[in-house]
């Protein structure tokens, strides 16, 4: 007969299940990526996942931990999927492998494994690649309908594995176009740029990818995998920032709120990166603060820095700040007059 401490009952959902829900939630976004940018993203995801799981298993073996027990939590898979989707389709295979290894070994396991990593592993992997190999990682395939041909299987494989370049399969992303634009009115930009002109709101392909991730995120919200605080505050802040600096669509404009919401990795970041429980702030108030700051940082970097998109940087910077934010956002406990930040009491 068991002698255990209460509670004796437990919700039938564990970390593995939550991670599997996250994986399921990425499907619409991944589907959109595949539909509009070809099978390259699928391949990236597969390769990143295999590498991630192998690395995780290897480290677990080295750390003399039960390998299967830890693999079952599916966190390595999630990291692989997120990284694979963030990397450009048809990028060289080693880029994916290096990124995935960095994410799992460097950013996650060296810090103690699941639950102990201060930074989002997928984003660390991505940033390492972005800084080390800026050229291949910024070459995005053109969305379907913009160029005549989709990249074929053989062509793609040759580029991925052997580095044989494909002619003219890339196109500037809407955010690239926006950051390079210095003289054209927004209205004209929407007419002249091939990607923007073929899209409805924020460029062909990109808007659908973002809508896909938004759907996935709403699914996770519905499943109560995370709370609304961080993603909503981030998206609202981004909208406000974009509205503030829209500048009436002049050549100086930072782009419309809709463009910002539906381009780049906005929705992926809001619902899949920012909500990573391990590295985010703990309390709901803290998450609100975190989301606001990521929104501000994201817009600032998109508009004024050399990087067209900056989800990874913004989120990593907030990962740095999360403990600090936690420090000042301790909720008010039942029966206490006001929330006392850890600082007040600690000094007593």
């Amino acid at each position: 007969m068991l002698r255990v401490s209460s509670p004796h009952t437990h919700i039938r959902r564990d970390t593995g299940q939550i991670m599997r829900l996250v994986l399921v939630a990425t499907v619409p976004g991944l589907l959109a990526l595949t539909l509009f940018f070809g099978w390259g993203s699928l391949f990236n995801v597969a390769l990143a996942c295999i590498t991630a799981v192998l690395c995780e298993a290897l480290v677990m073996k080295l750390r003399r931990r039960p390998v299967m027990f830890y693999l079952r939590d599916c966190t390595a898979l999630v990291t692989g999927v997120l990284l694979g989707m963030a990397l450009p389709p048809y990028c060289p295979w080693w880029l994916v492998v290096v990124g995935s290894m960095t994410a799992i070994i460097l950013a996650k396991q060296l810090y103690g494994g699941m639950g102990f990593n201060p930074f989002n592993p997928a984003m660390v992997g991505y940033v390492v690649l972005l800084i080390s190999f800026p050229v291949p990682i910024t070459q995005w395939a053109a969305p379907a309908g913009v160029l005549a041909d989709q990249v074929g299987f053989i062509e793609g494989m040759r580029q991925i594995w052997a580095g044989v370049p494909i002619d003219g399969y890339t196109a500037a992303t809407p955010l690239d176009v926006l950051s390079q634009n210095t003289s054209v009115l927004m209205e004209d930009l929407y007419q002249t740029d091939p990607t923007l002109s073929t899209g409805l709101w924020a460029g062909a392909g990109w808007e659908w990818v973002n809508i896909g991730f938004l759907l996935g995120g709403l699914f996770l919200l519905y499943q109560r995998v995370f709370t609304w605080h961080a993603p909503v505050s981030m998206l609202v802040t981004l909208t406000i920032m974009a509205a503030l600096f829209y500048d009436g669509g002049s050549s100086n404009s930072g782009g419309s709120p809709l463009l910002h919401l539906l381009s780049g990795a906005t929705m992926l970041g809001a619902f899949f990166i920012l909500t990573d429980p391990v590295t985010s702030a703990v309390s709901n108030r803290g998450r609100l603060v975190c989301g606001v700051l990521v929104g501000v940082l994201l817009y600032v970097m998109r508009h004024w820095s050399n990087y067209p998109d900056a989800i990874a940087f913004a989120v990593l910077l907030m990962n740095f700040a999360a403990p600090f934010i936690d420090y000042y956002t301790v909720p008010r406990t039942y029966g206490h007059k006001k929330s006392r930040s850890a600082l007040d009491k600690g000094e007593q």
Partner: peptide, 9 residues
């Protein structure tokens, strides 16, 4: 068996 806390909140 308990796993590591993932700080899910």
């Amino acid at each position: 068996p308990a796993q590591a806390c993932i700080r899910c909140g």
